[in-house]
């Protein structure tokens, strides 16, 4: 126990310093400040998206390929609210809640299937939304829509907003993962039939998690819309966001609270450095990194930072596995 506490203390100190540095970044003048802020802002938006996927995909192993649906819906809902004249923060919140409610029927549809079938339904839902939004001019049409400027269209505004939301998402994840619900989710990921046999309300647990997950993805989409001030269905509903949500969580560490942040920093850094040189190159590099990580570090980059005495740390599992043949 003491070792764990000491490890935690160190982690807390490191995280505190990093948080302070992140908070101070826009105020203290450093070289490449604007660049760093834009990298971090996108990293934070991606963290939200990745974290929302991580809740279902990481804990319960429900590999959704449709988080772009919630991302895009959130972006458009936020845009609709702000063009009605609502303040940006309120439209973000309304968008998040609206999409969370919308996810209930979606959950009903998706969770009737399992495994790869679930993945395919989620993919189909995102594609349907993309096609419908492209088709109906009153929703958006192919021209897309513009958002009115707000305090969050400035670099500093969106930076602090997304920083705060990222911290909130990490706490939400930790809280959910350690709650009874989180345990149930992990159990569902291990064996769904066994869970329902011992009386876990599998569908209820999954749907309520999807509610939180969809809200989180919607807020990520809303932030994206507030910052870029332009949305088009082909962009926000594209499969790339669904894929990035998965990559961010898997590269960073599937089912771990800080995994999406680590993954998102890497993705965002790659995107900002490689995209100006060769458009699209970052996705290629990302794919290569992902395959490497999946084969070498199946639990993601956070494994590198973890202490071996961590409760669910992958290293511990490896140790056990290595001991077995020796014994």
């Amino acid at each position: 126990m003491q070792a764990i506490n000491q490890g935690n203390k160190k982690t807390v100190i490191v995280l505190g310093i990093l948080t302070l540095a992140a908070l101070a970044l826009p105020i203290v003048g450093i070289p490449y400040q604007e660049y760093a802020m834009s990298v971090l802002t996108f990293a934070f938006i991606y963290t939200l998206l990745g974290q929302s996927w991580n809740l279902l995909g990481g804990l319960a192993k429900q590999f959704s390929l449709g988080h772009a649906a919630f991302f895009g819906l959130g972006a458009f809902a936020t845009a609709a609210c702000s063009s009605l004249g609502m303040p940006a923060l309120i439209s973000l919140a309304v968008g998040g809640v609206a999409v969370a409610v919308f996810s209930l029927p979606i959950g009903l549809i998706c969770f009737s299937a399992r495994g790869p079938y679930f993945t395919i339904i989620t993919l189909a839902i995102a594609e349907i939304l993309r096609i419908v939004f492209l088709w109906r001019p009153e929703l958006s049409g192919s021209e897309g829509i513009l958002l009115p400027p707000s305090i969050f269209s400035t670099r500093i505004g969106i930076y602090y907003l997304t920083l705060g939301l990222t911290a909130a998402s990490i706490f939400t994840f930790r809280w959910m993962a350690r709650s009874k619900q989180g345990l149930a989710l992990v159990a569902i990921g291990d064996d769904e039939d066994a869970c329902s046999e011992i009386g876990i309300k599998v569908k209820y647990i999954k749907s309520s998690t999807l509610l939180v997950s969809a809200g989180m993805a919607a807020v990520a989409g809303g932030c994206y819309g507030l910052f870029t001030q332009y949305l088009s269905p082909n962009d926000v509903f594209s499969i790339n966001y669904s894929l990035e949500a998965i990559f961010i969580s898997t590269i960073g560490g599937i089912g771990s609270a800080f995994g999406p942040l680590v993954g998102a920093l890497l993705v965002s850094l790659l995107e900002e450095t490689l995209n100006p040189l060769v458009p699209g190159a970052h996705l290629l590099v990302l794919g290569a990194i992902l395959i490497t990580i999946m084969f070498l570090l199946p639990k993601g980059l956070v494994t590198l930072f973890k202490k071996s005495d961590d409760k669910q740390g992958p290293r511990m599992q490896i140790k056990i596995k290595r001991r077995q043949p020796a014994a």
């Binding site: 590999f63 790869p116 894929l243 998965i246 996705l283 290629l284 794919g287 992902l290 999946m294 199946p298």
Partner: peptide, 30 residues
């Protein structure tokens, strides 16, 4: 070089194949 190593990873193989999708489509895009 790829598929034979994904035969025994279970459900997580979907992620490997997303990555393959990403690589192929972006090589083509480049």
């Amino acid at each position: 070089f790829f598929a034979r190593y994904t035969l025994d990873v279970g459900d997580a193989h979907v992620v490997h194949y997303y990555a393959l999708l990403l690589i192929i489509s972006n090589v083509l895009a480049l």
